[in-house]
Amino acid sequence: MIELKNITKVYKTGEVETTALKNINLKIERSEFVAIMGPSGSGKSTLMHIIGLLDRPTSGEYFLEGINVNRLSDNELANLRNKKIGFVFQAFYLLPRKNVLENVILPTIYSGLDQELREKKAKKALKDSAFPENFIYHYPNQLSGGMMQRVAIARALVNDPEIILADEPTGNLDTKTGEVIMHTLQKLNLEKGITIVLITHEEYIAQHAEKIIKIRDGEIIAEEKVKNRKILYYNNEI
C-alpha cells in the first residue's frame, strides 16, 4: 500500500541545512493500523506530510499503491489527496463559517461530486464517525472538542479514502474523549478496512495501533508489534 524507499528530506533555511528525514525505508500494508511515534523534532510530522502527499522528499522514492508519486504533478497529487487520503489534524481545522454538514461536504466539492450524492455521503460519513445526527446543522463553535474531531473524521471519510492520516488526533482532547476518538478510528479500520497511520508522541495512544514505528532524529529506530493492544472496539457499540 505505502512503500517508502530511502526517503530523505532536507530543509534549507538560508545557508543552514536541516535533515529532517534520513534514508527512511518503510512499508505499510493495506488495512494496517500503524502508529508513528517520536518526540517533537524527530521528523514524524515531516514523514506524515510526505506520506500524505503534502510535501515531496528531497531524495528517495515513494510508492502509493505501486505508483511512484515522485513523478506526479501538483494537480495529480491534489487529486490523490482528495480521493485516497483523509486527514485528521490535532487542531481539527473546521471552517467556522460552514456548518457541520457543509464542512464534511467540502472535499466532495473538489472531487466534483453531484449535489445529491454529496449530502448523502456526508451524512453517511457523519454516521460512521458516530456524530450525533441532530447536530449536523450546528456550527463548529457550538460543538465540543470531541464532536469537532468527529466532524473532522467524517470529513476525512467522505470521499471513501483508503488511508486516514491522523496527526495527533487526541492532542487537543481530554483522555476520555481521546479514547473515544481512538475507538472510532479502530472501528473504521476493522469494519471498513481503512489503513490508518497515526502520528503521536504518547505511548498510551500509540498502543491503540497494531504496530508502532519509533522515529528519532529523522531515523527509524524501532518497528514493533503492539503486544497488549488496547482494543476499545465492541460489537454492541455504534
Partner: peptide, 13 residues
C-alpha cells in the same frame, strides 16, 4: 489556514 486545509483535502492551485 482555511486555504491550507482546502489544499490538503484536494483543492488544486
Amino acid at each position: 489556514r482555511e486555504i491550507g486545509l482546502r489544499k490538503a483535502i484536494g483543492a488544486k492551485r
